[in-house]
């Protein structure tokens, strides 16, 4: 397994365990994401991928292990403080504020940014990247299509100026053409230097885009390697690519 662990990790997860009552959903995983990397985490439904992201973002407490972000332990911080450190999560199901307008959603993304000029510049950048969002600023966000909501969720997360962007199933429930667009946006974001950890059920797509990948099964990481290696791995092909 060629993991070629990055020299300057943004995120280091060591022996992380997460439990829901008696059920241990994540059973001691190690995971590293280096600066500027796009890393994906794939696996079947119920493997613990969403739990892993939620725990990294601070929505769930750890039952064991540690999370280091830019070298500092963050696993005892609440979610809102981790966001301030630079960890942003686009949650499963997008987490749009459906009763707020599109612009208000974006401004919630910039909630922690005190510098008004920086916020306006960030908004301009998001509008340039997502022109469809710009056309709908005054609309109530619940009226957007699924794809637009996903775009909005990503744009909103970017406005917090994250150093690490966690994306949970951005392709979920979307038409193939829309998924393609979303992945273009993700690649643009990554190419601008934002470190990305992506959870996907669409393993083929994720491995094509990602530099490295982890495979998760029943709460454990069972495989790790470069995107190309994993794509070629017979076990991955059999289990996740339907071959």
């Amino acid at each position: 397994m060629a993991t070629d662990a990055p020299a300057s990790p943004v995120l280091e997860v060591r022996g992380m365990e997460v439990a829901y009552g008696a059920i241990q959903a994540v059973q001691g995983i190690d995971l590293t994401v280096g600066a500027g990397e796009l890393v994906c985490l794939i696996g079947a439904n119920g493997a613990g991928k969403t739990t892993t992201l939620n725990a990294i973002a601070g929505l769930l407490p750890l039952a064991g292990g540690e999370i280091r972000f830019l070298g500092e332990p963050v696993h005892s911080l609440p979610a809102h403080k981790r966001l301030r450190r630079g960890i942003a999560l686009v949650p499963e199901g997008r987490g749009i504020f459906t009763r707020l307008t599109v612009e208000e959603n974006l401004r919630m993304g910039a909630y922690t940014r005190p510098d008004k000029q920086e916020v306006e510049a960030g908004l301009a950048r998001v509008y340039a990247m997502l022109p469809r969002i710009r056309e709908r600023l005054t609309q109530v966000a619940g009226t957007l299509s699924g794809g637009e909501q996903q775009m909005l969720a990503i744009g909103r997360a970017l406005l917090s100026h994250p150093k690490l962007l966690l994306l949970d199933e951005p392709s979920m429930g979307l038409a193939p053409l829309v998924v393609e667009k979303i992945f273009e946006v993700i690649q643009t974001v990554a190419s601008e230097g934002v470190t990305v950890l992506l959870v996907e059920q669409n393993a083929h797509l994720a491995l094509e885009f990602a530099r490295r990948g982890y495979v998760m099964e029943s709460g454990r990481i069972t495989l790790a390697g470069s995107g190309a290696d994993l794509l070629a791995d017979p076990k991955v092909r059999a289990a996740y690519l339907g071959e």
Binding site: H80, L83, R99
Partner: peptide, 21 residues
């Protein structure tokens, strides 16, 4: 006020925006 409305809709997502719920 915006943070109040966001929190009213979804505590978890509000906290992901950096809101101290």
């Amino acid at each position: 006020g915006r943070a109040m409305r966001a929190t009213a809709e979804n505590h978890r997502v509000a906290s992901l925006m950096g809101v101290d719920v």
